[in-house]
Design a protein around this nucleic acid. Structure first.
Lengths: 164, 164
DNA sequence: TATTGTTATACTCTATAACTATA
DNA sequence: TATAGTTATAGAGTATAACAATA
């Protein structure tokens, strides 16, 4: 069974308005990097969410899990900053993953306010599966780009996503 | 007065966990284009929303206005497809802009089901102001990148955001 | 006095299904 | 039978403010 990611997409042939030769609307927005990056995110997130559904993960919860698996001993504050989320949102996300025993809150010996988040073995296992799925989805989103172009894009995006 | 865009950001110096030399968390996610693109979008959208607030616009409503100003005679369906939004969402967005007389719904002589959306003079004027603001915000988000790099990024993103 | 995690609340955005009028 | 716009609703995501424990 195929998952419909953008169920509202119309057949370009039945549409009859100001389009360019490639079927893409010609408009100033297509020159705005912020718009392009938002549209790419929208498409990518929809696809990834659909693909992660069988694991009972979404992009947000996957991101928390991946953060913790990648760098152990993060505080909730660290995760929030890294993911550009408010710390109050991390509470619910960590709650959900902790309830499934995918990660755990540990006391920080240096600061009793802080809770260090650590992935469990089950969490690491699920993350490995999820990372494969996400990699496939990303590969699909980037079909038009060669490996070299993807590397180039990644570097440029890194500098946009993590400004000095 | 300065607008705080990411109010939860902590001072890197007070943080004490697994970070790389640049203060950036080292984690597999930073190699995932989908993550980087999402983070860039998150930062950019927050900044743009804050800057557009004085015009009583948000990124979503601005996008609709910009679509219509860039390519006249679009149907709501066209806008939905272009912005990756469900047609049902366009209704409320067009409603809001129409109420402010920034655009109008016109009957399509070829198909009485369709409504063609056209920007009014006031809409074009406001769009011009908004586009300046968005351009400045984008410029700020891309401080790290040279003009050539921005062009490169734009082209790569275009192919990611509008796959064949 | 400032910070971490937390709770609460309101708002925006997204997803889905169903309806109507047209085609 | 299918499509454009619409309505309704529920759920996900975001933004703020305030509080207790701790620094």
């Amino acid at each position: 069974m195929m998952s419909r990611v953008t169920p509202w997409e119309t057949d370009p042939r039945t549409s009859h308005s100001a389009k360019g030769s490639g079927g893409v609307l010609e408009c100033d927005l297509t020159n705005e990097i912020e718009f392009l990056v938002a549209r790419a995110t929208s498409l990518g997130k929809a696809l990834a969410n659909a693909r992660l559904a069988p694991l009972d993960l979404r992009v947000r919860s996957y991101s928390v899990l991946a953060s913790v698996c990648g760098a152990d001993g993060l505080s909730q504050r660290d995760i929030a900053e890294f993911l550009c989320l408010d710390p109050s949102q991390i509470v619910a996300l960590v709650d959900g993953l902790e309830r499934r025993a995918l990660l755990e809150r540990l006391p920080d010996p240096r600061d009793r306010r802080t809770k260090l988040i650590r992935a469990t073995a089950a969490g690491r296992k699920l993350h490995a599966q999820a990372a494969d799925i996400v990699r496939d989805a990303e590969d699909e989103s980037l079909q038009n780009l060669s490996t070299a172009e993807r590397d180039q894009l990644r570097e440029l995006l890194r500098r946009m996503a993590f400004p000095v």
